[in-house]
């Protein structure tokens, strides 16, 4: 059995540790032949290129399943070198891997990077691809503020396009919880614990209490959470800031005027 085939069978069996072990010698071979650093159609045969691509893609997918984000990022970077090469047959995993990568960026709140990646994709394929359209929908909801839809989409087993996407549910929920907390601070003066539990997607009241204790300034009085009054507290600090800024601006004008004269 060829190394690639055994790799594939290990992946299909869900034995991701074995995939990792099998990949190690393969990666050394790839590095020796230059496939890892600079794959190109002139120096390598089509079969070699496709085999290397498959190996790296399986590596990426099993890294997701093992929850190793750094490794996943590395595998993605390596396997994406192959996608630009002309003459190779289309990879069955390409859109899935790119979509997972986009999801990772979302969960790390790297929105700028997300859009940069998005720009390099073709719109028509993106909107019709079941994998790629998923992170894009999520991003749109996050930017709108429709967090409940994000939560429903990522935690529901039937809504995600494939099981790997569930691996990002926890970091993503964590990320949007942070966003919601920031919104809640500004939007509510106080909130009953029960409502907060729904709002922040916690299963138990204890989760809410723990979460509240991590937020600076949040307090629990009886059954309600109170948020720090942002405006009243900062008034003196604020006026000082304003004065300093005003002085700074005036000095700047004076300097510029001097230059002109």
């Amino acid at each position: 059995m060829s190394p690639i085939a055994s790799l594939e069978s290990a992946y299909k069996a869900g034995d991701y540790e074995k995939v990792e072990q099998l990949l190690l010698p393969l990666k050394v071979d790839m590095a020796k032949s230059g496939l890892l650093t600079s794959p190109n159609s002139s120096g390598h045969s089509k079969a070699d290129l496709e085999a290397a691509r498959t190996a790296l893609e399986i590596g990426a997918l099993s890294a997701v399943n093992l929850g190793k984000e750094a490794e996943f990022t590395r595998f993605v970077a390596q396997s994406r070198q192959f996608y630009g090469i002309q003459g190779l047959s289309a990879s069955p995993h390409e859109s899935k891997i790119v979509a997972l990568y986009l999801l990772l960026l979302l969960s790390q709140n790297e929105i700028a990077q997300f859009h940069t990646e998005l720009e390099s994709l073709d719109f028509d394929t993106v909107e019709n691809d079941k994998f790629l359209s998923f992170p894009i929908k999520l991003e749109r909801w996050i930017m709108e503020g429709a967090y409940d839809r994000v939560w429903k989409a990522i935690t529901n087993k039937d809504a995600v396009p494939s099981s790997e996407f569930l691996c990002f549910a926890d970091p993503l929920v964590f990320a949007i919880r942070g966003e919601i907390a920031l919104c809640a601070e500004k939007a509510y003066t106080s909130l009953p614990l029960n409502n907060a539990r729904h709002l922040l997607f916690f299963d138990s009241d204890q989760g809410v209490v723990d979460f509240v204790q991590e937020q600076p300034g949040w307090e629990i009085h009886g059954e309600r959470i109170t948020f720090p009054g942002v405006i009243s507290e900062d008034a003196t600090l604020n006026s000082r800031k304003v004065t300093e800024k005003l002085i700074g601006n005036s000095l700047e004008y004076a300097k510029e005027m001097e230059q002109i004269i």
Partner: peptide
Amino acid sequence: YIVAKAIR
């Protein structure tokens, strides 16, 4: 959620 985000 959307209104809360708009306030923020």
